[in-house]
Design a protein around this nucleic acid. Structure first.
Lengths: 181, 181
DNA sequence: TGACAACCGGAACGGTGGTTCCGTATCCTG
DNA sequence: CAGGATACGGAACCACCGTTCCGGTTGTCA
């Protein structure tokens, strides 16, 4: 592989990471190329499609979350679940692409990236453990919680992340089983 | 106004109401026209723009919510707020267009329809009253609550409304002040 | 019933965004 | 340093959507 080619891949990845995080997955390809200082043709030689590009980036985020979930699997069930939820919310509020991916299941890359599948399973395990321990109300599903969290991050993300903190904390409180009288 | 013209307006309104409710505001104009059994030209003769069309529809929903808010203004603060929240959530879960409008403030019709402004003020009043009465935690803003609720309706709306019930109830619980220890 | 104004359908336009293509520039090897 | 493979830029292409336009149709009134 030629040296300038490798350098351009780096540039594109950097530009894409920044833009996806700030603007979400809907940012135009041309803009990413412009930010990277290359033409769209160059971008497309290294990434066959736009989806491939943001998959490459989002997978890293998903893996870091997945690793964190694995770590927390050993802690006390309730504590583990809520800690993970808070961290996931914080991350999603900062990276719009993450929120986009986690929220709109069918739109892009469902089975394309197995990491997402894996993360969802880990998340569900954390939730079920917390429910079994009586820390979380038993009638919510994993999808419910993700939707709640991502909704807060996506719609609240307009004004910035400070608001997301409050919303995540409201969600956490609402999920605690002992709050239902 | 000719008879067939009036009849076509009716058809378009009916088709738009159904499609907006089911698919959200992003449904193409052509599809609405097709469902109404008319050409796009006909649609555009009666509604100058797509926005005008869904404004015509959504305003009805907003007004019904606004009326409900007015009614509840007399009830006990906490009760009033949570009742309204639940009803708003239920309605938004059933009508995607409503959720779209309430969620994305800047995208469409901000000052175009004063009803929305009015509703937001009423909502904020309900919230502040509930907070003053100690029924709702004091650190959430009206925007926070709307974002939370609309996020749940929009991202959860994929699978249907049953899930939305649970999510709204989680939000309600999380908002109660006495739940924070 | 005839004729005109109102109305209709849908093809065409303009803009946006993803993807492709090709003439040109650049890197690397001999 | 020369020649060819490799990579580059960005114009061109295609699909989608909101909107406009115009030749044909249809309701209505005399």
């Amino acid at each position: 592989m030629r040296a300038d080619a490798r350098r351009n891949v780096e540039r594109v990845l950097k530009a894409a990471e920044e833009l996806f995080a700030d603007e979400g997955l809907s940012v135009p390809v041309d803009m990413i190329a412009a930010r990277a200082g290359v033409g769209v043709g160059t971008l497309y030689r290294h990434f066959p499609t736009k989806e491939a590009l943001f998959t490459a980036i989002v997978v890293a985020h998903l893996e870091s979350l997945s690793a964190r979930a694995r770590d927390l699997a050993a802690s006390e069930p309730g504590e583990a679940f809520f800690t993970f939820l808070r961290e996931m919310g914080e991350m999603a509020a900062r990276k719009r692409d993450l929120a986009d991916i986690l929220a709109r299941a069918g739109l892009f890359t469902v089975e394309t990236c197995p990491v997402k599948q894996q993360l969802q399973e880990q998340f569900e395990t954390l939730l079920e453990r917390a429910q079994a321990a009586g820390a979380v109300r038993p009638d919510v599903t994993g999808d419910d919680v993700t939707a709640l969290l991502m909704g807060a991050c996506l719609t609240g993300g307009e004004h910035g992340q400070p608001a997301a903190d409050v919303m995540v904390s409201v969600i956490c409180d609402g999920l605690r089983a002992d709050h239902r009288r």
